Structures are given as C-alpha cells and as structure tokens.
Simulated scan of single mutants.
Amino acid sequence: MDFRERIARRAALELHDGEYVNLGFGIPTAIANFIPPGIEVILQTENGCLAFGGTPYVGKEDSDVANAGGQPITLVKGSAVFDSTVAFAMIRGGHMDSAFLGALEVDQEGNIANWALPLAPGRYSPGPGGAVDLVAGTPKVVALLQHANKSGESKIKRHCTLPVTGTGVVKVIITDQAVFYVEKDGLVLKEIIAGETVEDIEKITEASFTVAEDICEYRLS
C-alpha cells in the first residue's frame, strides 16, 4: 500500500453517516473507494457532480463524469451532474458538512496552504482553485498530506511558510505517519503509524503538539 492509499483509507474513517462531503483534488479523490461499510455519504466534486461512487472498472468509465482530479467516477442512485457554478453555490451556501483537501503545508494553528508552489520570487503556481471557497464555507476541513517533503522537511509547521488558503479552518490533519486533531490549544497527536513512537513523530514534526491520553495505532479500517 502506498502513502496515498494509506492516507485515503484513514481519511475515510472521518466520514459520518448522512454527511454531504466534498472531495478535493489529489489524495482526497481516492476516499470514494474506501467508504466504510454501513456509512452512507453524499459525495460532491467542485467540477459538478453530487452523489457519486468510486472508480469504475476499466471500460466502464464515462469521460464526461469525473472527480476534481479529472479521474473517472461512477454515478449512483440519485446522482446529479451540473456545471461548476452550481457546485460552488452549494459550497458557498454552506451545504457541505465536510471537505477533504490535499495540502502543501498545515500548521499548529489550523492554517492550511494548499495551492501555491513557488516558481520564482513573487511567482506561484498553479492557483488557489476552489479551496478558498471550501475552507470558508465548510464546518469541518480535513487536511491530507505527506508528513515531510522530498527534502525531508516537515510539512506540519509551527507557522505556514507558503501563502495561506484559510486561517484556523483545519479540524483534522492526516499524514502518512500520524493523525492530529486541531484543538483550541493546538495540535493533539491521536494516532501513530505502526512501529513508530511519539519520539519518532517529534523528530519529523516542526509543529508543537500534545499527546492524546487515548493515543492509538494508525487505523486503516
């Protein structure tokens, strides 16, 4: 199992029955494939679909029906397909219960930076996309990302260094190594990947955090 699947499987455990859920670009799109048994949620994608399922079998895909990453999805009973203006009316109107977003950085204050890759001084790419609307209009934002970048530097920061998409909006941080909840006093470490210790997580995390009394092994089901 690669890190993307691991994060997506753990993220799916944050779903609650009956929720309206936006799945953002990147790792979040895979959550549709790992919804736990007995949980029914209404998935939304910002490019224009409400109520969809996971990845179709090869040859069964419809190129006109895709998720935020342009990957094929399956339509389910009650599905609706529309343009992105309708999708954003739902988001801006506060009709999503939760949003799962990929991130470049998050910090101990619940801030998220998820769009601005620096190209040169003062120049960033690719652009904020729909994340600005999602973090402003959704009560529960879950950030999904690798714990460290390619240089081994922590992406769980004391303070975000990239342009911030939203301030104080993240409620849960799920990485390939750990799960943090964002509480009013800061980050709380809730789960650790098997074989690692709290000390191991401290070494790879720039942000300060406390440890939950009921800390447990990273869950996948």
Rank of each mutant, 00 (worst) to 15 (best):
E105Y: 12
L220W: 03
G186M: 06
N149P: 00
L104C: 01
L187G: 06
A148M: 13
D64W: 01
P72M: 12
A89Q: 13
A212K: 01
F180L: 10
V65F: 15
G110H: 03
P118G: 09
P28R: 00
V179A: 12
G38W: 01
I42L: 07
F52D: 07
N67E: 01
A8V: 04
L119D: 03
V58H: 09
G53M: 07
E196W: 07
V179I: 07
H95I: 08
L145V: 04
P163I: 13
A207C: 12
A99S: 15
G195D: 05
L144I: 03
D214P: 00
G195P: 06
I39T: 15
G38M: 08
T161G: 09
G78E: 06
D2I: 03
V172S: 08
D83A: 01
L134F: 08
V76R: 13
Y124T: 02
I27H: 01
A131I: 03
L145D: 12
I35E: 08
I27K: 01
D64G: 11
F82E: 05
L101T: 09
I174R: 01
P121M: 01
N149D: 15
H95K: 06
A12Q: 00
A89N: 13
G102A: 10
T45M: 03
P56Q: 15
D64Y: 10
M1Q: 09
A212D: 15
A212Y: 02
P139W: 02
R4F: 02
G24H: 04
D214I: 02
K203H: 08
P128S: 12
A131D: 15
A194R: 13
C49L: 14
F100S: 08
G195R: 07
L75P: 12
P126C: 11
D83R: 00
H16L: 07
L117K: 14
E105F: 10
T167Q: 11
F88V: 02
N67G: 03
F82M: 12
A12E: 04
I192R: 04
F180P: 06
A87H: 05
V65K: 05
E105D: 08
L187C: 11
V132F: 10
A131H: 09
V164S: 12
V172W: 05
V188S: 02
Y57N: 14
L187F: 06
T205I: 10
I7T: 04
T205H: 08
N22E: 14
Q71E: 15
F180H: 05
E5I: 10
A32R: 12
V58R: 14
H95M: 15
Q108A: 09
L15V: 00
E217V: 11
